[in-house]
Amino acid sequence: MDKFEIELAATLKGHQNPIFTLEKGYFPNTFFSGGNDKGVVEWDLEKKTFKRILCAVSSSIYALHLIPNTSYLAIALREGKVMIVDVEHQKLVANLEVSNKAIFALQSIPTKNELVAVGEDGIASVWSLADFKKIYEFAISSNTIRTIALSYDQKKIAFGDKNGDLFLFSAEDYHFLLANQKHTMPITSLIFSRDDLQLLSGARDAALKISDVATLKEQFGFVPHMFTVYGIYPHPKYPIFATVSRDKTIKIWDEEDYALLKVISRDKFFDSHTLSINTGLWVGEDPYLLTAGDDKLIKVWKMTMS
């Protein structure tokens, strides 16, 4: 990995409450944010300014998911609904009554044209993206599920629950494959490695675990932060990933050996966040790293290779 520098390119203000989720936009150089405010905000990344309120919502937003190859944004709400909004025409397409409890995570499966929603009731709800009707549902855990990960080949789907358990299912027919307790506290972030051979999980126990997908046995683990690991974000081009945490820090890691490459925090003299960082996102042609959290701010970080 070549050397790189990171600098703050912009601080975006406008949210009145904590931000929980960021998602790439449908239009070039745009992205979305949501949280405890009663609306989804669209931002212009090129101008680094507010663009518009996409839509109003009736409760807190816990997840945003732009459905691939469409202009549809799925919005997961605390009240148990998932709104589908056409970003291009700014209109509500569907209002999915998923649960009477909070929905925390969304994942589409493009090869099947399906959307999976999970949340507080521990049940996965599968919806057709052709007509937005429920196809199937299956129980994962008796505990809250906060995170989903889909393998790159779209054949496996993983879930992490409040007990620290990891669950692996087939994404092709949703049959159960494996489960294993990986953490001592709730799992809050989850991704597959680029080759689909490993699962990376972060949790409220401040640990990051790397597990073998074939067996769910732990291969390696370390403590990247002082508190909850809220997100793990692979760079779109380089073999590095970022993590964000309740400890107010952003860290950049080498994918090959998990070496720490960079710490972004106020302690390191960056104009970074003052409260918990709840979410992150790499976005743009020459990707920016976006971070947001309880301080109601979105930070735009520019990475320069040297």
Rank of each mutant, 00 (worst) to 15 (best):
125 S>K: 14
164 G>Q: 05
185 M>V: 00
125 S>W: 09
120 E>W: 11
124 A>Y: 02
137 E>N: 15
162 K>Y: 14
175 H>I: 03
182 K>L: 14
173 D>F: 10
135 I>N: 13
150 L>P: 08
148 I>G: 00
201 S>H: 04
178 L>I: 00
206 A>L: 07
201 S>W: 01
119 G>Y: 07
133 K>W: 10
202 G>V: 06
136 Y>G: 02
167 F>V: 02
205 D>L: 10
147 T>R: 03
210 I>E: 09
199 L>W: 00
146 R>H: 12
171 A>C: 09
124 A>K: 06
189 S>F: 04
207 A>R: 11
115 L>W: 07
118 V>K: 02
132 F>H: 15
112 K>G: 02
110 P>K: 10
183 H>E: 05
142 S>A: 14
215 T>D: 09
210 I>S: 03
207 A>Q: 14
199 L>H: 03
204 R>Y: 12
115 L>V: 11
191 I>V: 14
159 F>E: 04
107 Q>A: 13
174 Y>G: 00
185 M>Q: 14
161 D>F: 02
119 G>N: 06
157 I>Y: 01
207 A>T: 13
134 K>F: 09
203 A>Y: 01
165 D>L: 02
178 L>G: 00
189 S>C: 07
126 V>L: 05
160 G>L: 01
123 I>Y: 02
175 H>T: 11
135 I>W: 06
191 I>G: 04
120 E>K: 15
216 L>I: 11
138 F>G: 10
149 A>K: 02
134 K>R: 15
148 I>F: 00
131 D>M: 10
196 D>Y: 04
162 K>S: 13
183 H>C: 08
129 L>D: 05
107 Q>E: 13
214 A>S: 15
216 L>Q: 05
153 D>H: 07
157 I>E: 01
144 T>N: 10
201 S>E: 05
120 E>G: 03
157 I>A: 01
129 L>E: 11
172 E>V: 15
106 L>C: 07
153 D>Q: 11
197 L>H: 13
177 L>Y: 01
148 I>C: 02
198 Q>R: 14
120 E>L: 12
187 I>W: 04
198 Q>M: 11
135 I>F: 04
152 Y>N: 15
112 K>E: 12
167 F>Q: 00
211 S>C: 13
209 K>Y: 06
128 S>W: 10
189 S>M: 08
134 K>L: 10
119 G>M: 08
167 F>Y: 15
161 D>R: 04
149 A>W: 03
